[in-house]
């Protein structure tokens, strides 16, 4: 690596930044030099990373990241506890909350089943999910429409359906504002499968 010619602390900073997702050695170098020229930003960033790491933990109920346990969403009495929405990542909770459409509670799996990457049910928070089913009438699978997401939804559906819980899946189809002409065949086929009466 060319950054090995830099002074050791700078080389360490670059190689640490290069370990972040989506950042290659070139971008890492640019970021490192920028941080060196902006001491206040570096200070704030370092502090924010440390604070987030120390104060954030996983909620003991839904596994979302939180600074208080249970998290604000799990504590909120206004939320409908008969509906549970299962998502892959904590950031998916934020996306769903932005819609203001879902009034129930969430459960974060922290991944999906991925046999080729060696991720099985034990690596996800399925045990925690099974412990919080009392009073739940519907579980909404808001997992990504990929083969792995579907496999995870099917796995959970197999577990939950025999218990008499309604298991639903968010719709697949055309994005709002999208053009049918430019949509791919698979998406159009899914959209047709999921058509509904007007």
């Amino acid at each position: 690596m060319d950054f090995l010619n830099y002074p050791q602390p700078l080389a360490d900073l670059i190689s640490s930044l290069a370990r972040l997702p989506g950042i290659g050695p070139k971008t890492a170098g640019r970021l490192a030099f920028y941080l060196l020229q902006q001491p206040q930003i570096s200070q704030d960033l370092a502090q924010a990373i440390l604070t987030a790491n120390h104060s954030l933990k996983k909620c003991s109920i839904c596994s979302n990241f939180t600074d208080q346990d249970p998290c604000a969403l799990c504590q909120n009495p206004q939320r409908d506890s008969t509906e549970l929405c299962v998502v892959e990542h904590p950031r998916d909770v934020v996306s769903l909350e932005k819609t203001k459409e879902f009034k129930g509670r969430y459960h974060v799996l922290h991944g999906v089943l991925s046999p080729m990457e060696g991720i099985g049910p034990e690596q996800l928070t399925i045990n925690l999910l099974l412990k919080r089913l009392k009073g739940v009438q519907e579980v909404v699978m808001a997992l990504n429409p990929t083969v792995e997401g579907e496999a995870t939804a099917l796995y959970l559906a197999r577990l939950l359906k025999p218990l008499g819980i309604k298991v639903t899946r968010i719709a697949h189809g055309l994005p709002v504002g999208g053009d049918l002409e430019y949509a791919d065949e698979v998406t159009i086929a899914r959209a047709l499968e999921g058509r509904r009466q007007l």
Binding site: L113, P115, G120, P121, E122, I126, N127, L130, Y155, R158, L159, P162, L163
Partner: peptide
């Protein structure tokens, strides 16, 4: 493992 895990989860439920 997934089949076993499914059975184990069903048993626990």
């Amino acid at each position: 493992t997934i089949s076993d895990g499914l059975e184990r989860h069903i048993r626990s439920l």
